[in-house]
């Protein structure tokens, strides 16, 4: 995996040097030779250094837990991860939590009241919202609510926190964090909620006809208990794996949303790193994503066994 990623990102068209040259020319109007000269000395990146040599050095460091330094800024990659990861975990995590929670609840009710007005309205809402890409929602939200209607003080809401505010476990700081997280979380929820609702609904549908549900109903269990303990729990099973994969990808952040809202998350950082071909930073971020995806999948399998006692993983069946 690591090897594959290592080779992959070095085969990407362009390299940090030529990109810097182009940037200098476009942004500072330098002539080619001027830009080439300046870029050449800006970072010690040698495009002709053998890949194998770079690879052995990288792996050697990695085994000692060292992710290396950014080839652009010479900043240790670990520092960057530590700086940006918490923001992403907070905002995307919160967004996922809300959209998943709301999604399974509404989805279950949709299936339960199948064919009702509630079901139809929610289906329309979910399908349409889920069909619109996040950047369209984000840009329209800012332009319409922020600029044209002026009901959203979006300029103040950009970023992760108000510049100059002292971090600490205080109410004003927490409120400030939530204030700034509102835009990314809201956009994240609104664009992913529909997906959870519809999958939960369809998953619940497969459960509804099951014998044990009929039995439970015959036993006269309350609707609430029926929904939570019997239907919901079983219907959630396939969603748990999906959730796990989403959790795994949290660390990658929401690249477009973070960039548009200037949220200081790992996704924004990744976008920059890809743009300037900062190989070491990309490696670091992709590694963290890979680890967390694999890890959350393992977790999902374990969780799955807990949620559905019928399945005991590792039990060998010959079929």
């Amino acid at each position: 995996m690591t090897t594959f990623t290592f080779i992959l990102i070095r085969q990407m068209p362009g390299n940090p040097f030529s990109i810097k040259v182009e940037q200098l020319m476009r942004e500072q109007n330098l002539t080619v030779e001027e830009a080439t000269n300046r870029a050449g000395a800006l970072f010690d990146f040698d495009p002709n250094r053998p890949l194998l040599e770079q690879y052995t050095e990288y792996m050697g460091k990695l085994l000692r837990g060292d992710l290396g330094k950014s080839i652009i800024s010479s900043e240790p990659v670990m520092n960057m991860l530590l700086r940006f990861l918490p923001w992403t975990l907070f905002s995307v995590g919160l967004g996922l939590l809300i959209s998943f929670g709301l999604g399974i609840l509404i989805g279950m009710l949709m299936a339960y009241w199948r064919g009702s007005l509630f079901d139809n309205v929610m289906t329309a809402f979910a399908s349409v919202m889920y069909g619109i890409p996040d950047y369209v929602i984000a840009l329209l939200l800012i332009i319409v609510a922020g600029v044209q209607l002026r009901i959203l003080p979006f300029a103040q809401m950009l970023g992760g926190s108000t510049p100059g505010i002292e971090p600490g476990f205080r109410l004003d700081y927490i409120l400030d964090l939530l204030f700034h997280a509102f835009l990314p979380v809201f956009t994240y929820v609104i664009t992913s909620l529909g997906g959870w609702m519809l999958t939960m609904k369809s998953s619940t549908m497969s459960t509804l006809g099951e014998d044990y549900i009929t039995v439970a109903r015959a036993r006269g269990l309350s609707q609430r208990r029926l929904l939570t303990a019997y239907i919901g729990r079983n219907a959630m099973l396939p969603l748990v794996t999906r959730l796990a994969i989403s959790v795994g990808f949290i660390v990658g952040g929401a690249v477009i949303i973070e960039t548009l809202y200037q949220y200081p998350g790992l996704g924004r950082n990744l976008a920059t790193a890809i743009l300037v071909r900062d190989y070491t930073v990309m490696q670091g971020i992709f590694l963290v994503i890979a680890i967390s995806v694999v890890f959350s999948n393992i977790l999902a399998d374990l969780l799955f066994g807990l949620l559905d006692p019928r399945v005991r993983l590792g039990k060998e069946d010959a079929s």
């Binding site: 990407m12 068209p13 362009g14 030529s18 990109i19 182009e22 071909r277």
Partner: peptide, 8 residues
């Protein structure tokens, strides 16, 4: 194509 590739 992406600009980096176009240039290369």
């Amino acid at each position: 194509v992406p600009w980096q590739q176009a240039r290369d």
